[in-house]
Amino acid sequence: MDREFAYSYNDYVKYGNGYKDMNPISKLTISVCLGIASCIVHRWQFGVALCIIGTLAAIYTRIFKKYIKSLLVIAVPLLLLTSCIRQLQYAHLEGNQPIFKILGWQWYDQPFIASMDIAWYIIGFSSVLLVYFMNTEMKDLMLALENRGVTHVASYIMLSSIQSIIDMKKSADTILESQKARGIETDGNIIVRMKAFFPTLGPILLSAMSGTEEKAIAMDARAFSHEGGHTYLRVLRPIPWWEYILDAIAILVLVGSIVYQVMKTVGAL
């Protein structure tokens, strides 16, 4: 047995990375506050800045490759779509300055900036959320929530739902494999795949449902509903002071962005 591993549970949950080791709720607070601020401010400068922060965090936590793949899937279509739509929508806006021509299509500055504002606030928000979810284990988030008073029942429901989705995916794969073995076509265009997939839904849902009952019993055997004190094998690090400061800054940025937006709307800026 790997005793070192066993005794590592004596320590707080530790990943050895400044970002990963932060409390899941502090991280979430920071990401969400900055993300919402990005929506409220609605300026490409803010979005780009947030995206840079997110990207740096992705590099720091060594998930850059995975992160950039997902981000590009969001960013590229979004940038193309919003900029084309805005060019068409606001082509005749007063004060438009031409900037460049693509294949004879004249683009103007104001619609271009407007489209960048939209695209980047979403990209900025996506960036921080991606980094958050790629670096945060759901069980850690639930543990943090339990520490703040969420019941272990709620936490169990949440975590086991995630696991049952994984299990369903697995049984779907198994069924598709065996269909293939029996000579039923499962690869090919979308219609072929749908035809192969729909008949599997019944058994998958049924097995997931019958599993729930037995799982409930199995959890009961582990004293799940036992009252009077629950202890934890995995314990999160107590939140250090600087995490509170980062949280506070993120909240301040959010409040600041709201104030900025209100002032702008009433015409004070």
Binding site: F5, A6, Y9, E137, K139, H152, S155, Y156, L159, S160, Q163, S164, D167, G211, E214, K215, I217, A218, M219, A221, R222, A223, F224, H226, H230, T231, Y232, L233, R234
Partner: peptide, 21 residues
Amino acid sequence: TQISGIKSTVFEEVAIGLENL
């Protein structure tokens, strides 16, 4: 059906009952 589905290591799985107690 006896695996909880909420733990990511066997060590944690074996500890569940003790956590609950």
